[in-house]
């Protein structure tokens, strides 16, 4: 016991009641990278097992939503999408919005859905939401393919659409969308462990958010009709991402760098808070979930 101080230095790790504010052990997460990929594989492989249409479901859902949106918003409500075919306009918005939506909804349920595993084994909890964001990327990829198919189809029909030079920013936009879903999802997931009300809120909150994110209308339309409240939509980072993606793919608007900086900043702030809150609740959530 004389060399007590010497022994103390050797501890590999220590478990204490309090967490540091930002306790993201990246080295530990890295050592669990195999688990991350196995979770992604599990999600992908098992998603549509024992369904007849299988991955086709990935396609059916955005296609039908686009058709409905085109009928309601463009044909009935007469929202103009300029020179772009309304169907393609909606499909672009829905494809990228869907990625956010699926990232957000599945991460926001992390703790409740995985209480069984989390209650028995320790691994860095953040692996779970990360795997969700990655496996949803694959789904997004498939939906992007169907979008490309329609893109080529409308292009061959002579629609006035073209890619802009900013298309190289497309992966960055997807990344922002994923991180935003991850960050928000982690914040919500931590709250849900204690107060289930939040989960109900998420359901219709997302629906409202979609209307405020310029998914089925161009932002210019909103500004024109409701200039007083346009800021709600304009300051929404989702709006920027959706607008820019449509802009770069369909050549309807220019890329706004100042808004890009703003959206990136907001995303990082949300992600930062998401990680802090997630870390804070991961230690003891199993007692309350």
């Amino acid at each position: 016991m004389s060399n007590n101080s010497h022994i103390k230095d050797d501890w590999l790790f220590e478990i204490t009641p309090k967490n540091k504010l930002l306790d993201l052990n990246l080295k530990e997460v890295w050592s669990y990278r195999d688990l991350l990929f196995l979770f992604v594989k599990r999600d992908v492989v098992t998603a549509y097992k024992q369904t007849i249409l299988g991955p086709l479901w990935y396609l059916i859902q955005p296609l039908f939503t686009s058709i409905i949106f085109t009928l309601i918003f463009n044909n009935v409500a007469n929202i103009s999408t300029g020179t772009v075919p309304p169907f393609l306009f909606n499909l672009a918005g829905i494809t990228i919005w869907n990625y956010f939506k699926s990232c957000f909804t599945s991460t926001s349920d992390t703790f409740n859905k995985n209480a069984g595993i989390f209650g028995k084994v320790y691994f860095p909890r953040i692996i779970m939401p990360m795997s969700v964001v990655i496996s949803n990327l694959l789904r997004f990829g498939i939906q992007l393919l169907i979008f490309s198919a329609f893109y080529i189809y409308f292009y061959s029909l002579g629609a006035e659409i073209s890619l802009t030079k900013y298309v190289f920013m497309f992966p960055v936009m997807v990344l922002l969308m994923g991180l935003l879903g991850l960050g928000l999802g982690m914040i919500i997931s931590s709250l849900v462990t204690k107060y289930r009300d939040i989960k109900i809120l998420v359901g219709f909150g997302l629906q409202l958010l979609m209307y405020l994110s310029a998914v089925m209308y161009p932002i210019s339309f909103f500004v024109e009709k409701m200039p007083k409240y346009a800021w709600v939509v304009e300051y929404n980072p989702l709006t920027f991402i959706i607008e820019s993606v449509r802009g770069m793919l369909l050549n309807v608007s220019d890329f706004d760098w100042s808004k890009f900086v703003y959206a990136t900043f907001v995303t990082l702030v949300i992600l930062f808070f998401g990680i802090i809150i997630f870390n804070k609740s991961e230690k003891n959530f199993i007692d309350t979930v």
């Binding site: 501890w11 590999l12 478990i15 009641p17 967490n19 320790y122 003891n284």
Partner: peptide, 24 residues
């Protein structure tokens, strides 16, 4: 559960020199 880091202790601490794997 506390030792396997599934839940945290309310007070006190656990120090370990090795990797812990738990089979709960």
């Amino acid at each position: 559960k506390i030792l396997s880091k599934v839940t945290g202790p309310t007070t006190g601490s656990i120090k370990s020199k090795g990797r812990i794997a738990s089979l709960l």
